[in-house]
Computed example of a mutant assay.
Amino acid sequence: MSNTARDVFITGLRNAHAMEIQARELMERQSERLDDYPDVKAKVQMHLQETNEQLRRLEQCLDACGESSSSLKDTTQSAVANLMAIGHAMAGDEILKNTFANNAFENFEIAAYKSLLALCGAAGMSEARAPLETSLKEEERMAQWIDANVEKVTLAYLQHEQRQAA
Rank of each mutant, 00 (worst) to 15 (best):
D7N: 11
D63R: 10
L116C: 10
E133H: 06
E109F: 06
G92N: 11
N3A: 08
I110K: 15
A111Q: 12
E106K: 15
F9Y: 15
Q77D: 02
M19A: 13
Q164W: 05
K152E: 10
A118Y: 13
C120K: 13
E20I: 00
Q162M: 06
N82D: 12
A101M: 10
E59N: 13
L34K: 13
T99K: 08
M84S: 09
K43G: 01
Q77F: 00
R141F: 08
A130H: 06
A123N: 03
Q49M: 08
S68H: 06
M19S: 11
S115W: 09
I21P: 02
A128P: 02
K152Q: 12
D74P: 04
M125V: 02
E138P: 01
E32C: 08
E161A: 03
S69Q: 04
S70N: 06
R29K: 11
L117D: 03
R57F: 14
L13D: 05
A143Y: 07
V150T: 13
K137C: 02
K73Q: 00
E67F: 05
K41I: 00
C120G: 09
G87R: 04
N107D: 13
H47K: 04
S2K: 11
F100G: 05
L55N: 07
A101P: 01
P131T: 09
A156I: 01
A91E: 12
D93M: 08
K97F: 11
P131W: 10
T51R: 05
L155P: 00
G124Q: 03
E94A: 15
W145I: 06
L48M: 06
E138V: 04
A104D: 12
V44Q: 05
V40G: 02
H160I: 00
T76Y: 08
T76S: 09
G92Y: 01
R33S: 10
N3W: 11
L48I: 02
F105R: 15
T51D: 07
S69T: 01
E109G: 13
E53G: 11
K43I: 02
M19N: 09
A23H: 08
R56N: 11
M142I: 03
L136I: 07
R24C: 10
L26V: 04
R163Q: 13
M84G: 01
N3L: 11
A42P: 02
Q144L: 13
Y113M: 07
L72S: 08
L58E: 05
L117G: 02
H160C: 02
T4R: 12
H47A: 03
A122S: 15
A156T: 09
L117A: 06
T11D: 14
S115N: 12
E127Y: 04
D7T: 14
G121C: 05
N52E: 14
G66V: 10
D63A: 12
L132G: 09
W145P: 02
V8G: 00
N3D: 14
V8Y: 04
L72R: 04
F9T: 01
T4P: 01
L158W: 05
R14W: 00
A148P: 01
K114N: 11
M19T: 05
S2D: 15
Q162H: 07
D35Q: 08
E133Q: 15
A166P: 03
A64V: 01
A112C: 12
T99A: 15
A166N: 15
A122I: 01
I86W: 10
T4N: 09
